[in-house]
Each structure stands twice: as structure tokens, then as C-alpha cells.
């Protein structure tokens, strides 16, 4: 993460791929604005208190109202960027996802790991996740594969033992066993 010098407008940089980013920004902010308006309305039904002027829903409503204003501002900027003649299209959404397939595969494996943990338990789920992801990321044969398997065993069984026996924090053991 870096902290580059901000621009006042938040304008999307124009050039290759700027069109896709502006479009994504526009869709995201339009969706968020609609969601926040719905939540703003829902927050109205939260109870108030006779002991304080602000009820349970006042602070969230204040924040949601400000959020909608910011969403609409970013949406407007994105739409203006899209209208600029120098705003060029990039490789397209499908190509964008394909380029980042390993990142999404890792996140998908992490999700699968979390979902399987209550059933398989921490040690087995972690072992499979670590071995599987390292294999996906390139540890396919020979020395790299052997190291990957050792790392998987150490960080799954080792952490389970460390937390259970030393810190007395029990990690899920699994419902299947």
C-alpha cells in the first residue's frame, strides 16, 4: 500500500483501461448509493430512547446520508470521465479476471478452506489448503513439492498443537471425527 499525493477531484486517470475502471466505479457507486438509501430507510424503524435525543438509528442515518452524497459525487465524476474522448477501453472485464486468475483461485481456495473447517477440522483443512494452494502457485514437482508438503504439515499440525497445548485455545477439531 502506498500513500500517493491525492488529487482534489478523484478523477480517474484517463488512458488505457480508464474506461473500464470508470465504468466499474460508476456501477459500484450506483449500487452502493441504492443500497445505502434502502438502509437509510430501514434505519428509521430502529427504536429511539426517551433518555437521549439521538436514538439507535440516528448515527447510522447520518453516516448513510453522507455516504450517498459521496457515492453520487464519485458516480458523477466517473460518468464525466466516460464521456471524455481520450478515455480508452482496456482489455475488458473477462481478460481482467483471467489475468488475475491465480489471485482469485487463492481467494476461492481460502473460502473453501473456511467452509470445510467445521467439518474437517483445523489441522486437515489447513493441511489441504496449504498443500493445494502451494501446488496451484507452482510447487508441482521435485524439491519445491517436497518443501511445500513439509510447510503444509508444520503450519497445520504445528499451529494446532501450539494453540491447543501451549496457549490453551482450541481450534476446531472437526465434526466428522
Amino acid at each position: 500500500m502506498t500513500a500517493p499525493t491525492p488529487t482534489a477531484s478523484g478523477e480517474t486517470p484517463v488512458g488505457e483501461g480508464a474506461r473500464g475502471q470508470a465504468l466499474a466505479n460508476a456501477i459500484l457507486n450506483a449500487t452502493l448509493a441504492a443500497l445505502f438509501v434502502a438502509l437509510f430507510v430501514q434505519a428509521d424503524s430502529l427504536p429511539s430512547s426517551m433518555w437521549e435525543p439521538l436514538g439507535s438509528g440516528s448515527f447510522p442515518r447520518l453516516v448513510l446520508a453522507a455516504l450517498v452524497v459521496f457515492n453520487l459525487s464519485i458516480l458523477t465524476q466517473s460518468l464525466l470521465t466516460l464521456r471524455r474522448p481520450d478515455c480508452k477501453a482496456g482489455a475488458g472485464a473477462a481478460a481482467w479476471f483471467v489475468q488475475r486468475r491465480l489471485a482469485f483461485a487463492t481467494l476461492a481456495a481460502f473460502a473453501l478452506y473456511a467452509l470445510s473447517m467445521p467439518w474437517l477440522g483445523f489441522p486437515l483443512a489447513s493441511l489441504l489448503f496449504l498443500a493445494g494452494v502451494q501446488w496451484t502457485l507452482g510447487a508441482r514437482r521435485g524439491r519445491r513439492l517436497a518443501i511445500a508438503l513439509i510447510v503444509a504439515a508444520v503450519f497445520s499440525l504445528g499451529l494446532y498443537w501450539l494453540f491447543g497445548e501451549v496457549f490453551r485455545i482450541s481450534l476446531p477439531a472437526g465434526r466428522l471425527w
Binding site: 499525493t5 491525492p6 478523484g10
Partner: peptide, 12 residues
């Protein structure tokens, strides 16, 4: 206002 390319996005 410190991070990111846009203050609007930062505040959001």
C-alpha cells in the same frame, strides 16, 4: 486526505 489518489474516495 493522507492516502489514496482521491480525497473523495478517502472520505467515502
Amino acid at each position: 486526505s493522507l492516502v489514496g489518489k482521491s480525497v473523495l474516495k478517502g472520505l467515502m
